[in-house]
Design a protein around this nucleic acid. Structure first.
Length: 426
RNA sequence: GUGGCUGUAGCUCACCAGGUAGAGCACCGGAUUGUGGCUCCGGAGGUAGCGGGUUCGAGACCCGUCAGCCACCCCA
């Protein structure tokens, strides 16, 4: 016998957690729909080159975190590490961005990293992408939508919006040169990782966690001083829109983000409640990406939500959801069981919203009632010899203290209708 | 990829100078003939992550490996 375990970093979402997931997904769908966003479903595998070109050749994701393999035709494939690249690919392939287009998708993403709290090798994201609008009203809408989602999920209070403008590619190129010049003069004062990043990805030094490096950055040139007028103006406008929406934010001049395709406005929603991986949502504008993929130049912006982190956050806030049974059907013996069959079947058709659990496997009344209790059902429907003989059913309250009663089959529907009305009112 | 901590019944953990394992919860059954939750009684369940070494003897010591957790890196 062999004992299999889930592959490292791949996590089973167990039945005790799925009700919370489902309620989160339901709320997300409602919010997205209410803003007019349409769902798109995308493959989990894409050509490796797609990610290398969009995310950036020298990013950690592409350099060391991708699940890549050659298929039988010897072409390099990759399990998607994020969703934007595939979404943009689909938009270009099907020419979806002829008019402004609002899209969302959800599903698993894969990154080969060492697992820790809030980080898995297979995790789930909700991605929201908007194509065709260059003005910051689009960025404002995306941020407003995300905030609406936090409110509806009850996590609004523990999330803060950090926001920045990283300007155009040429702004950043200029700034990068200035930053490298400044930091190179103080090379020895930098932490080891930042020294390495001086060559590979200098902008990422900005959000180093090393205190000495951060101190050094206080006197460093500021990215905001290198932005062109357009980026600056649009950022100001966006902040004004956020004020109008009543969304508090923290302008974080050192927020850069790791993927190459971002420009202008970038933002993150972060929390203190999750340990080191506090980013629940991150996004920004990526005006150049559609063109890179061979589409006609199309402005675009979007964000991604880490769903495991969102769930973790809800759990930390003790937000719980469960869906216990409503009815548990008990039958005395084989004959009684057969008697219940068509009746329970009818109930399910008449009351599709009721959770009706039929006892299986026989056993004494005692053991059946034990199961009924554990199911969380509000009522047990009992079919014994007497009930069957008289076309009746006994109702026993398992949660409240209502007295047990026996009613005719014909009265059951009315009883259940009342029960449903009550539980919906509660 | 780096570092720290951990790995004993389904879960949470204990035992032990190294002499082949226990508790609580959960589970199953019972406590007068068709009735759960409380209580009582009983039962089932572990080749102590895996491999190797030291030893007369290892779950306990050593090495390796795998996995989990947390942090770094990076990101959702």
């Amino acid at each position: 016998m062999t004992n299999f375990r889930a592959i490292r970093g791949m996590v089973d979402i167990l039945p005790e957690a799925t009700p919370l997931w489902q309620s989160m997904e339901t709320v997300a769908l409602e919010v997205l729909s209410s803003y007019g966003y349409e769902e798109i479903r995308l493959p989990v595998i894409e050509s490796t080159g797609l990610f290398a070109r969009s995310i950036g050749e020298v990013t950690d994701i592409v350099e060391k975190e991708m699940y890549s393999f050659n298929d039988r035709n010897d072409e390099s494939m990759t399990l998607r590490p994020e969703g934007t690249a595939g979404c943009v690919r689909a938009v270009v392939q099907h020419n979806l961005a002829t008019t402004p287009r609002r899209l969302w998708y959800t599903g698993p993403m894969f990154r080969y990293e060492r697992p820790q709290k809030g980080r898995q090798r297979q995790f789930h994201q909700l991605g929201v992408e908007a194509f065709g609008v260059a003005t910051p009203d689009q960025d404002a809408e995306l941020i407003a939508l995300s905030r609406q989602l936090w409110r509806r999920l009850g996590v609004d209070d523990v999330l803060t919006l950090e926001i920045n403008s990283i300007g155009s590619a040429s702004d950043r190129a200029q700034y990068r040169a200035a930053l490298v010049e400044y930091l190179s003069a103080h090379r020895d004062a930098l932490d080891a990782d930042s020294q390495r990043r001086l060559e590979t990805n200098p902008l990422r030094i900005l959000d180093s966690k090393d205190p000495a490096t951060q101190a050094l950055l206080d006197a460093a040139p500021a990215l905001s001083d290198h932005l062109d007028a357009e980026s600056r103006d649009e950022f100001e406008q966006l902040l004004a829109y956020l004020d109008g929406l009543g969304i508090p934010y923290r302008v974080n001049p050192r927020l850069v983000r790791g993927l190459d395709y971002y420009n202008k406005c970038v933002f993150e929603w972060t929390t203190e409640a999750l340990g080191a991986q506090g980013t629940v949502c991150g996004g920004g504008r990526y005006d150049g990406l559609v063109e890179i993929f061979g589409g006609k130049a199309t402005p675009a912006a979007g964000f991604a939500v880490g769903l495991e982190r969102l769930i973790l956050l809800m759990q930390a806030l003790e937000i719980t959801v469960s869906s216990p049974a409503d009815l548990y059907v008990i039958a005395a013996d084989e004959a009684a069981y057969r008697h219940t069959l068509p009746r329970v079947d009818d109930l399910r058709r008449q009351f599709p919203d009721l959770h009706i659990v039929q006892h299986l496997g026989g056993g004494s009344f005692k053991s059946q009632f034990k199961r009924a209790d554990k199911s969380g059902a509000a009522w047990a429907l009992v079919y014994g010899e007497t009930e069957i003989a008289n076309n009746q059913v006994t109702l026993k309250a398992l949660r409240g203290d209502a007295a047990q009663r026996t009613i005719g089959d014909a009265e059951l529907a009315a009883f259940l209708a009342d029960f449903l009305a009550e539980t919906e009112g509660a």
